[in-house]
Design a binder for these strands. Structure first.
Length: 585
RNA sequence: GGGCUCAUAGCUCAGCGGAUAGAGCAACGGCCUUCUAAGCCGUGGGUCGGGGGUUCGAUUCCCUCUGGGCUCACCA
């Protein structure tokens, strides 16, 4: 617990220790029940006395009143303690609180909320994992954006992170592509737009195969040849793979994503015989309906197929092989799979097989699922052509952003160059999309609508980015007059006693906690909400109070420091979500 | 049928067993000669799906019912 807010003072702990000294109860238990009241008017922290009623044989309000009088002159960081009903409400000294938080936030800088608790504990995050030769559509956006944020969050807490892109680069589909390319492939088109061309011939293959059954047979033969390492098939497969990766790289670059490892399914295929031997040696493998399976009745799960009845491998066997590989290679502390919830059962089976095979670390494997991206009335369907490519979505978002930038530039008479406008539009447009995927709990389905996706009002990516840019603008102006956040003395900072300043400080203070909760639940949206809260509180403060024209020099220095702290928190928060911030917009 | 998951404002969603259930969008009404109006302020809007139970206290935990979604052997 001490680790949690190491970047700043732990007021909750301090209150728990105060209570502990007066009641004789252990501070740890008390700390767990110290809560934050629903309204600020009720105080910064509260301690419900109801649970004490039984042991003390007194009414909760009486206990609260008694404790309040005892704690009245407790500590310098407290302004007052009030009994309200059965609650004991603690009001922190505004000056001490705001001053401490701002000073600590400035000292932490980009490492606000960061710790080293993960040092030496390698975390693997598998995410994105698109299929080679298939378009990168918005369904892949979810795992890509979510996974990136999860990886960054762990990194912030000191965990060494390995980002793995488990490419879908294996299977009979490649036999089909090889056949199709031989018959209808267009070299020039392939170079021009690889995935479009590969998709075209893939669709063509399926059309033709309806009339010509020999095509399927040939495809299987070609895939077999590929598996056996036949040179022509291998060369073609590698080419398709390389070209696809090149195209994916464009999207990854735009979103600032890089992987440590692109080992796809194909990489693990030759490790499967060893897996089969292992499972057989442990007596787990049995034949069922011609296939080799591991029964999981005791676990309450359906059997896991390891080898198909024709002896071929299947995704479960490849995932088992890859898990073993990861443990051997990285000795992971945690192995995270950012894959859609429809595959929840599959992962439960894979983990159960590993556990059954005697690998205790199976418990360190986690499936981080997420909902479907769909239209209001129907599912996304590649076959029906009812998909939205991520490229297309990003382009729309960037274009809309550019319009707003141009309009504002004219309105405000700013001097943004063509180059800067393009760069800002790119970052804001992409950030808007990324934010949409990290706004709510990941289990929820996302109903796609252009209208909502391109709405930049209210709690959105652009809102957070705008707030940052606004703060930076103030700081730039201050700097021109020679002012900087470092000028503020502790006495200056302690003078920020206003409601709006305190509200901002409270949200800043919760930053580290939000990062922790996000990591514990593998839920970046918990940080998204904190970032949004900080932005909202700062905008309110910004509208109500003047920063550069504060009533006096000391308060001005303090407010500049507060603004700097907010900017740092916003930039760091956005970065942990995988979103870039801009200095102007 | 089994498993998992969800049901909260017109819409999209938050709500760690606790105080008067909150945001954003949409609607309506205000605020730019002053630090970026992608902003701020205000108003209206709720049987927290239904019914039981546990508890001093349940939107939150348990059971049950209803209604969605996903999934249940050789695709991934």
């Amino acid at each position: 617990m001490d680790e949690r807010r190491r970047w700043s003072m732990d007021f909750r702990r301090a209150i728990a220790e105060l209570l502990s000294a007066r009641t004789g109860l252990p501070a740890d238990t008390l700390e767990a029940s110290v809560e934050v009241p629903p309204q600020f008017e009720l105080g910064d922290y509260a301690f419900p006395c109801f649970p004490l009623a039984k042991t003390l044989r007194k009414a909760p309000p009486a206990i609260a009143a008694e404790l309040a009088s005892k704690l009245a002159e407790g500590a310098p960081f407290l302004d007052r303690v009030q009994a309200v009903g059965g609650y004991l409400n603690f009001f922190l000294d505004r000056g001490v609180f705001v001053g401490t938080v701002v000073a600590d936030a400035l000292a932490a800088g980009p490492r606000i909320g960061a710790t080293e608790e993960g040092a030496g504990k390698t975390v693997i995050v598998e995410f994105s994992s698109p299929n080679i030769a298939k378009p990168f559509h918005i369904g892949h956006a979810f795992t890509t954006i979510l996974g990136q944020s999860v990886a960054k969050l762990y990194t912030h807490l000191g965990y060494p992170v390995v980002r793995m892109n488990h490419l879908g680069d294996y299977g009979t589909q490649f036999g089909k592509l090889i056949v199709a390319y031989g018959r209808w492939g267009d070299e020039a088109a392939l170079l021009e737009a690889p995935i479009r061309e590969l998709l075209r011939i893939y669709v063509k293959f399926h059309d033709e195969a309806k009339a010509d059954l020999a095509l399927e047979t040939e495809a299987r033969a070609r895939f077999l040849a590929l598996e056996e390492g036949n040179a022509p098939e291998m060369a073609l497969w590698k080419r398709f793979r390389d070209l696809s990766l090149l195209e994916f790289a464009r999207v990854y670059d735009r979103m600032g994503i890089a992987f440590d490892n692109y080992n796809g399914e194909s990489y693990y295929s030759d490790r499967i015989p060893a897996v089969v031997d292992l499972l057989r040696a442990k007596g787990l493998l049995e034949e069922s309906e011609g296939a080799q399976v591991v029964k999981l009745d005791e676990e309450g799960l359906p059997p896991c197929i390891v080898l198909k009845s024709d002896g071929a491998t299947i995704y479960a066997s490849r995932d088992i092989a890859s898990a073993l590989y990861r443990k051997e290679t990285y000795g992971f502390y945690k192995n995270i799979y950012v894959v859609g919830t429809p595959q929840a059962l599959h992962f439960r089976q894979v983990f159960a097989v590993l556990k059954k095979a005697g690998f205790a670390w199976a418990d360190d494997c986690v499936h981080v699922g997420f909902g479907l991206v769909k239209f209001a009335d129907r599912k996304l369907s590649t076959r029906a052509g009812e998909v939205i490519f991520l490229d297309e979505l990003l382009a729309e978002s960037v274009a809309k952003t550019r319009e707003i930038i141009d309009r504002n530039a004219e309105l405000r008479g700013t001097d943004m160059s063509e180059e800067e406008r393009a760069e800002v539009a790119e970052k804001v447009g992409i950030g808007a999309v990324q934010y949409m995927f990290l706004r709510n709990g990941r289990d929820r389905d996302i109903v796609f609508s252009w209208e909502e996706m391109l709405d930049f009002d209210g709690e959105t990516g652009p809102y957070a980015m705008y707030t940052y840019a606004r703060g930076r603008s103030v700081l730039r102006k201050g700097a021109l007059e020679g002012a900087s956040a470092a000028d503020a003395t502790p006495e200056d900072l302690a003078r920020m006693g206003g409601d709006d300043e305190a509200a901002v400080a409270r949200l800043l203070y919760g930053f580290g906690d939000a990062v922790h909760r996000a990591v514990e639940a593998n839920e970046p949206f918990l940080l998204t909400r904190q970032v949004a809260g900080i932005a909202r509180a700062f905008n309110k403060f910004y509208n109500n109070e003047s920063i550069l024209s504060a009533p006096d020099a000391g308060l001005r220095r303090a407010r500049i420091a507060l603004t700097e702290a907010v900017c740092t928190a916003l930039k760091t928060g956005l970065d942990l979500l995988g979103i870039a911030a801009v200095e102007r917009m």
